[in-house]
């Protein structure tokens, strides 16, 4: 019944989290990744329960690129339009470290009031 409420809450929550997750994925990856690859990695990681739609990561990738947290290069592809491969920049790593600590603080704070192991009766 609270479907629209949950949706709105999820959207508000995802605003910054998607950017954090994308930066982390690119930080861990040894090679450059393109949009579809990143989307598939995230999809396989959360086993079908999609926290966010894969279509929403593309505009965030472009925004991160515009902020110079990522660099990108275009590589021609036979499957369709040329692919844009992304790589994290030094500035991106710096920002990621800050965001991680912000996220840890926020998570600890939330856990104190809404513990994750709280089971429903």
């Amino acid at each position: 019944m609270d479907d629209s409420n949950s949706q709105k809450f999820r959207k508000d929550l995802n605003g910054g989290l998607v950017a954090l997750v994308l930066l982390s994925v690119l930080d861990r990856s040894a090679e450059d990744l393109y949009g579809y690859e990143i989307a598939k990695r995230l999809a396989s990681a959360n086993e079908g329960t999609s926290i966010f739609k894969e279509g929403t990561i593309y505009p965030v990738l472009r925004a991160l690129s515009a902020d110079e947290l990522l660099t990108s290069r275009i590589v021609p592809s036979y499957a369709g339009p040329p692919r844009r491969y992304y790589r994290i920049t030094a500035r991106g790593r710096l920002v990621l470290a800050q965001w991680r600590s912000i996220w840890r603080d926020a998570r600890d704070f939330v856990d104190r009031f809404a513990p994750p192991e709280e089971s429903s009766p």
């Binding site: 989307a39 999609s50 739609k53 894969e54 279509g55 929403t56 593309y58 505009p59 925004a63 515009a66």
Partner: peptide, 19 residues
């Protein structure tokens, strides 16, 4: 997976406004 055209359009609109 990717989202409906409406959802994707919304994502672009919102990110554009933020950026």
């Amino acid at each position: 997976t990717y989202g409906t055209p409406a959802e994707v359009a919304n994502a672009y609109r919102e990110t554009e406004i933020r950026v």
